[in-house]
Amino acid sequence: TIDDAFRAIERAIQAENEGRYREALKHFLDGGEMIVTAAEKEASQKVRNLLLHKGKEVLEWAEHLAEWILE
């Protein structure tokens, strides 16, 4: 659900702030994927587009974090 997705993102932010970057990455990926999944089930085109945009933002952040971890 969207609530689960945002809880995962909150955990990711907390982990990132505490320097637990790999854990943060996992939570960002989980949250982003949950948002995209919820968007695919959404009946309203406007809400679907907003959710897809937010999911994409979260997944892009996860990608940047992963690249930073690997440096």
Rank of each mutant, 00 (worst) to 15 (best):
residue 2 I to N: 02
residue 2 I to P: 04
residue 2 I to E: 03
residue 2 I to A: 05
residue 2 I to W: 06
residue 2 I to V: 10
residue 3 D to N: 11
residue 3 D to L: 14
residue 3 D to K: 14
residue 3 D to I: 13
residue 3 D to A: 13
residue 3 D to R: 13
residue 4 D to E: 10
residue 4 D to V: 05
residue 4 D to T: 04
residue 5 A to L: 06
residue 5 A to G: 05
residue 5 A to V: 07
residue 5 A to Y: 06
residue 5 A to P: 02
residue 5 A to H: 02
residue 5 A to F: 09
residue 6 F to E: 04
residue 7 R to T: 06
residue 7 R to C: 09
residue 7 R to K: 12
residue 7 R to F: 04
residue 8 A to H: 11
residue 8 A to I: 12
residue 8 A to D: 02
residue 9 I to E: 01
residue 9 I to S: 00
residue 9 I to N: 02
residue 10 E to V: 11
residue 10 E to N: 08
residue 11 R to C: 10
residue 11 R to T: 05
residue 11 R to M: 09
residue 11 R to N: 04
residue 11 R to Q: 11
residue 12 A to R: 00
residue 12 A to H: 01
residue 13 I to F: 08
residue 13 I to S: 03
residue 13 I to H: 04
residue 14 Q to Y: 03
residue 14 Q to S: 08
residue 15 A to I: 02
residue 15 A to H: 07
residue 16 E to T: 15
residue 16 E to L: 15
residue 18 E to L: 10
residue 18 E to D: 09
residue 18 E to P: 02
residue 18 E to K: 04
residue 19 G to Y: 01
residue 19 G to W: 03
residue 19 G to H: 05
residue 19 G to V: 01
residue 20 R to I: 00
residue 20 R to G: 03
residue 20 R to T: 00
residue 20 R to C: 08
residue 20 R to V: 02
residue 20 R to N: 08
residue 21 Y to L: 06
residue 22 R to G: 07
residue 23 E to A: 04
residue 23 E to H: 02
residue 23 E to M: 03
residue 23 E to G: 01
residue 24 A to M: 05
residue 24 A to G: 01
residue 25 L to P: 00
residue 25 L to I: 14
residue 26 K to T: 06
residue 26 K to G: 05
residue 26 K to F: 08
residue 26 K to Y: 08
residue 26 K to Q: 12
residue 26 K to V: 06
residue 27 H to Q: 07
residue 27 H to M: 12
residue 27 H to F: 11
residue 27 H to N: 06
residue 28 F to T: 01
residue 28 F to M: 04
residue 28 F to E: 00
residue 28 F to V: 04
residue 28 F to I: 04
residue 29 L to G: 01
residue 29 L to R: 11
residue 29 L to D: 00
residue 30 D to Y: 10
residue 30 D to A: 14
residue 30 D to I: 14
residue 30 D to S: 11
residue 31 G to L: 14
residue 31 G to N: 00
residue 31 G to R: 03
residue 31 G to S: 04
residue 32 G to F: 15
residue 33 E to C: 13
residue 33 E to D: 09
residue 34 M to G: 05
residue 34 M to T: 03
residue 35 I to L: 15
residue 35 I to T: 01
residue 36 V to F: 13
residue 36 V to W: 06
residue 36 V to I: 15
residue 36 V to T: 08
residue 37 T to S: 10
residue 37 T to K: 15
residue 37 T to D: 10
residue 37 T to W: 05
residue 37 T to R: 15
residue 37 T to F: 04
residue 38 A to Y: 07
residue 38 A to K: 02
residue 38 A to G: 04
residue 39 A to R: 01
residue 39 A to P: 02
residue 39 A to W: 07
residue 39 A to K: 02
residue 40 E to V: 14
residue 40 E to W: 15
residue 40 E to F: 15
residue 41 K to N: 11
residue 41 K to A: 10
residue 41 K to C: 10
residue 41 K to G: 11
residue 42 E to W: 11
residue 42 E to G: 04
residue 42 E to H: 09
residue 43 A to Y: 06
residue 43 A to T: 14
residue 43 A to Q: 13
residue 43 A to W: 12
residue 44 S to Q: 08
residue 44 S to E: 11
residue 44 S to M: 12
residue 44 S to I: 07
residue 45 Q to M: 09
residue 45 Q to N: 07
residue 46 K to G: 10
residue 46 K to H: 14
residue 47 V to F: 09
residue 47 V to Q: 05
residue 47 V to C: 12
residue 47 V to P: 01
residue 48 R to A: 05
residue 48 R to F: 06
residue 48 R to V: 06
residue 48 R to S: 03
residue 49 N to G: 07
residue 49 N to A: 02
residue 49 N to W: 06
residue 49 N to V: 06
residue 49 N to I: 09
residue 50 L to V: 09
residue 50 L to E: 13
residue 50 L to H: 10
residue 50 L to P: 02
residue 51 L to Y: 06
residue 51 L to Q: 00
residue 51 L to A: 01
residue 51 L to N: 00
residue 52 L to W: 04
residue 52 L to D: 04
residue 52 L to R: 05
residue 53 H to L: 15
residue 53 H to G: 11
residue 53 H to K: 15
residue 53 H to M: 14
residue 53 H to R: 15
residue 53 H to S: 14
residue 54 K to G: 04
residue 54 K to M: 15
residue 55 G to E: 01
residue 55 G to W: 15
residue 55 G to N: 03
residue 56 K to M: 12
residue 56 K to D: 02
residue 56 K to V: 06
residue 56 K to N: 05
residue 56 K to I: 09
residue 56 K to C: 13
residue 57 E to L: 13
residue 57 E to V: 11
residue 57 E to K: 13
residue 57 E to G: 04
residue 58 V to Q: 00
residue 58 V to K: 00
residue 58 V to S: 00
residue 60 E to R: 11
residue 60 E to K: 13
residue 61 W to D: 00
residue 61 W to G: 00
residue 61 W to R: 07
residue 62 A to R: 01
residue 62 A to K: 00
residue 62 A to D: 00
residue 62 A to C: 04
residue 63 E to K: 14
residue 63 E to R: 15
residue 63 E to D: 07
residue 64 H to A: 09
residue 66 A to G: 04
residue 66 A to Q: 07
residue 66 A to C: 15
residue 67 E to P: 00
residue 67 E to K: 10
residue 67 E to C: 12
residue 68 W to H: 08
residue 68 W to V: 08
residue 68 W to E: 03
residue 69 I to W: 05
residue 69 I to V: 05
residue 69 I to H: 06
residue 70 L to C: 14
residue 70 L to Q: 14
residue 71 E to W: 07
residue 71 E to C: 10
residue 71 E to S: 11
